[in-house]
């Protein structure tokens, strides 16, 4: 039986397929495995951030700090590796710890002081972005051997196409995300929290722990995305990943996750990111269009998806067994 709860995801996947096919008919050279793989290569960091964001939004929260945390991670990594000569083996784990800690603190403030996630993570966003400029106001270019190797290594697949190491990391994160969401108590508690916090509390679920864990997870994902972004850009800069939090939120919503919480799938988010990527690719194939058209199309898509979800949930309300 096709369950109604998968309808939203089916629409996302269908939309992606339609866009990809449209591009394939219109442009020569569009229909190839490598074009799809390039979507992953260019959006690996977005995929990673969006996984963390999906968890946050499923609880009914939001995390605006992710873009800034990415920038801060690139900045700190570049500074430590390049200017202080720290080994990457120390820097990368340190970044992940700092990112998680940052998320943990925001989560604790949100829960214990009962402050809107929007405001707390907005403050986190300004804080992390500002800290970048304390390190340097300029770009710090990285020429460390490990980082360049990570950036340039191509993993060849049968058939002549290739992916980057970042893609592997992103795919692992997505697989882990799906496992956590559906096969662990933490994951189910996250969904319960998004369904009704009051009920979760009365059912004896660990609400405080779950809520803080979600922001910690998002902080971790942001830091990991920051590391991947450093591989991608080979530099640290305070203006990196400007507005990326909004791209991540858009991907999550287009992927079928309800902003009100309780409903959403990592798998949908995956396609949400790919849809953003495919729009960009179409625009670059078109050649004459400004890249701002990506934002326009994403904006329209978001409107459509939010309306679509509204209609779906209105129908669900009237349709009982």
């Amino acid at each position: 039986m096709f369950k109604q709860k998968y309808l939203s995801i089916a629409v996302t996947v269908f939309l992606f397929a339609v866009m990809f096919l449209a591009g394939s008919f219109r442009y020569t050279g569009f229909f190839s495995l490598q074009v799809i793989l390039n979507l992953l290569i260019d959006n690996a960091f977005l995929l990673i951030v969006a996984v963390g964001m999906t968890f946050v939004i499923v609880t009914g929260g939001i995390d605006l700090s992710v873009g800034s945390v990415i920038a801060l991670t690139t900045m700190m990594s570049a500074s430590l590796v390049q200017e202080h000569g720290w080994p990457p083996a120390v820097v990368i784990p340190l970044m992940l710890v700092i990112g998680s800690l940052f998320g943990w603190v925001m989560g604790a403030i949100i829960h214990y002081f009962k402050i809107q996630p929007f405001i707390v993570t907005l403050a986190g966003m300004f804080l992390a972005r500002g800290l970048c400029y304390v390190i340097s106001i300029n770009t710090i270019t990285i020429d460390d051997a490990f980082y360049t190797k990570m950036a340039q290594t191509k993993i060849h697949l049968p058939g002549g196409s290739f992916i980057s190491i970042s893609v592997i990391i992103a795919l692992v994160v997505i697989a882990a995300g799906i496992y956590i969401a559906h096969y662990t108590r933490l994951g189910r508690n996250i969904y319960a929290l998004g369904g009704s916090e009051q009920s979760a509390l009365l059912m004896g679920l660990p609400v405080a722990r779950t809520k803080i864990a979600v922001y910690t997870l998002s902080g971790f994902c942001s830091a990991l995305a920051g590391v991947v972004f450093t591989f991608y850009m080979l530099s640290g800069y305070g203006l990196h990943a400007m507005g990326l939090e909004l791209d991540a939120i858009a991907s999550v919503v287009i992927g079928g996750t309800l902003l009100t919480g309780g409903v959403g799938y990592i798998f949908g988010t995956f396609f949400g990111v790919l849809i953003q990527g495919v729009i960009q690719t179409i625009i670059s194939f078109e050649g004459t269009l400004s890249s701002w058209w990506t934002k326009i199309v994403i904006g329209l898509l978001l409107f459509l998806f939010i309306l679509f979800q509204r209609v779906l949930s209105a129908r669900q309300a009237t349709q009982k067994l």
Binding site: R185, G195, S196, S199, G262, V263
Partner: peptide
């Protein structure tokens, strides 16, 4: 009703006490 409407019936009965093996539900 103080349950979570978005979860399945089975989950609503068992959440917090799900049968698991090695942490996997």
């Amino acid at each position: 009703v103080n349950l979570c409407p978005n979860l399945t019936v089975a989950e609503n009965i068992f959440i917090g006490r799900e049968p698991r093996r090695f942490g996997r539900i």
